[in-house]
Every structure is written in structure tokens, then in C-alpha cells.
């Protein structure tokens, strides 16, 4: 099965489980969790079931398109269900069957893994799902987001698309994976991988990036003070990506690093609080909808 069909299959399956199919969020981010559709919407009492593909940028993992396993940008298939359904493990395993993975022919395990993202004040408990020893999915029950208790608890499934595909297509090199018939990951992503690596490690304008970080941070603060949660959060994401670019270039010392992370975390926390307050003020519209 090529990647395109994998994505279509997962979308079809999770839409049948009443998930809202969304598109990738249009601000750079390091993980699907950082999309406001996960990070903010997982907070508060309103039900929220959603699935989307998220291109995730990790500048530090850039390898000029030479490493068979690491990418500047990979893809995650993200599912969020709040409250977590009682049969979520079965739902997940059924999704693997849809991808053609027969559990009787493999060894599928749930191996303890507690997830934490200090930058976003988020933490959860769950597993890495192993398929014959390979981690294919992060399975997490959110316990805390933006420093706030998650209640009710949302469950997050993050499928590593390229990982899973390398298994399904039996390929050793990520660039050999088929995206659709005849078109490979190499065809689509090799040039951007190479160029982004070159940009990140060699060519990026450090001074400008530092300046942008400060500007984005300021804008996030002022926007938040005006009660505009979503625009403020966009600027937090921009801060985070700018920080990642600087960090990958090695221009942030470790001391400064902690400082930057805590600046982003503080913003994320305040926005999480503001989001919850705003939903409450609006009378939790999604909750009312469900009651109807």
C-alpha cells in the first residue's frame, strides 16, 4: 500500500468512528500535538473527535536527505478522541487491520511510554505501540496540557506515517517509499530535505531569527492580552519553530536554551488558560450541541 492510500484508509476509517477530518494546520510545528486542534481543543469539557495528517518539522533531524531514517520533515497521522472511548485500543488495532496488518502474522505490543512535552507544559501516560519491535504509534492519554489538568481525558494516537510505510512497503530507506504509484518520497521531498538542511545548518540568518523570536513573542503576548487566543497561539508556534531553527544551528547555549523553553512554556500556559476561560464564557458550544 502506498502512502497516499494509507492516508486515505486511515481517514476513511477514523471518519467512520465519527472523527472530524481536518487538514494540516498551516503554521510550522514540530509535532501534530502542537496543532491548536489538539493542544487547545483537548482542554475543557467539550467532546472533541478529530483526525488529520500533520507535516512535522524537526530542523535538528535534517540530514541533507542522506540518512535513510531521519527527516527534516516527516508526517504524522493524528487522532484525538475526547473523552477517550472505552474501546480505543480495539479501535486502534482495527485501523492497523485496515492497513493490511494482520495481528496474527505479527507481534503487536503496547510498551510503556510516558510522553512529556515540557515546552507545552503537556504530559500523558500510555505506550509506544510496537509492530515486530518497531515503534509505529505513540498512544497517549493526556493528563496535563498547558499546565492544566486534562478533564475529561483525551486520548491521542500519533501514527508515524513514514515508519509505518517502511514496514508496509518493506523498504529500508525512507526515500524509496512510494507516495503513490510510481512517485516516491525521494521525488517529492529530497530537494526540500537537502535545501532545508542546508538552510538550517549553514545559511539561516541567525540575527534575523533572534529578532523574529522576540517579535513573535511580543505579538503573542499583546494578542493574548486582547483575548485573541487562536492568533496568539499561532505566534507561539512561530516562536517554537524559530527557536528550533536557532537551536539546530547551535547558536543557543544550554543555559539560554532553558530560558527560551520556559518563555515558550509560559506563553503556552497562559494561552491554555485563556482558551479554557473563553470556552467557558461561550458556554461550551460543543457540549450543548451534543446534548441536542
Amino acid at each position: 500500500m502506498n502512502i497516499q492510500n494509507m492516508i486515505l484508509t486511515l481517514q476513511q476509517y477514523w471518519s467512520e468512528q465519527n472523527c472530524i477530518l481536518l487538514q494540516a494546520y498551516d503554521v510550522e510545528k514540530g509535532a501534530g500535538t502542537m496543532s491548536p486542534m489538539t493542544l487547545l481543543r483537548s482542554l475543557g469539557p467539550e467532546p472533541w473527535n478529530v483526525a488529520y495528517v500533520e507535516p512535522s518539522r524537526r530542523p535538528d533531524d535534517g540530514r541533507y536527505g542522506e540518512n535513510p531514517n531521519r527527516l527534516y520533515q516527516h508526517h504524522q497521522f493524528q487522532v484525538i478522541m475526547k473523552p477517550s472511548p472505552d474501546n480505543i485500543q480495539d479501535l486502534y488495532l482495527d485501523s492497523l487491520k485496515k492497513l493490511g496488518i494482520d495481528p496474527l502474522k505479527h507481534d503487536i505490543r503496547f510498551v510503556e511510554d510516558n510522553w512529556e512535552n515540557p515546552t507545552l507544559g503537556a504530559a500523558g501516560l500510555g505506550w509506544e505501540v510496537w509492530l515486530d519491535g518497531m515503534e509505529i504509534t505513540q498512544f497517549t492519554y493526556f493528563q496535563q496540557i498547558g499546565g492544566l489538568e486534562a478533564n475529561p481525558v483525551a486520548v491521542e494516537l500519533t501514527y508515524g506515517i513514514e515508519r509505518l510505510a517502511s514496514y508496509i512497503q518493506d523498504k529500508e530507506n525512507v526515500f524509496e517509499l512510494e507516495w503513490n504509484n510510481g512517485v516516491t518520497v525521494h521525488d517529492i521531498f529530497y530537494q526540500p530535505e537537502l535545501e532545508h538542511s542546508k538552510y538550517t545548518f549553514e545559511e539561516s540568518n541567525t540575527e534575523m531569527l533572534f529578532e523574529l523570536f522576540t517579535m513573535y513573542e511580543e505579538e503573542a503576548k499583546t494578542t493574548m492580552e486582547k483575548g485573541l487566543v487562536f492568533p496568539a497561539y499561532d505566534y507561539v508556534l512561530k516562536c517554537s519553530h524559530t527557536f528550533n531553527l536557532l537551536d539546530a544551528k547551535g547558536v543557543i547555549s544550554v543555559t539560554e536554551r532553558t530560558g527560551y523553553i520556559s518563555r515558550i512554556r509560559n506563553l503556552a500556559r497562559r494561552i491554555a488558560k485563556a482558551y479554557v476561560a473563553e470556552r467557558e464564557r461561550l458556554g461550551y458550544p460543543m457540549l450543548k450541541k451534543e446534548e441536542k
Binding site: N69, L104, K105, H106, D107, D132, G133, M134, Y167, E172
Partner: peptide, 17 residues
């Protein structure tokens, strides 16, 4: 032990990576 060679093969692939 059904399809165990398949499981072994998958694990080999992971270790190889």
C-alpha cells in the same frame, strides 16, 4: 509460532535500522 519467521524478519529490520 504462526508466521514467526515474519515476526523475526520484522525485528531484524528494526535492529538493522
Amino acid at each position: 509460532n504462526k508466521s514467526i519467521e515474519n515476526v523475526a524478519k520484522g525485528n531484524e529490520k528494526v535492529l538493522r535500522a
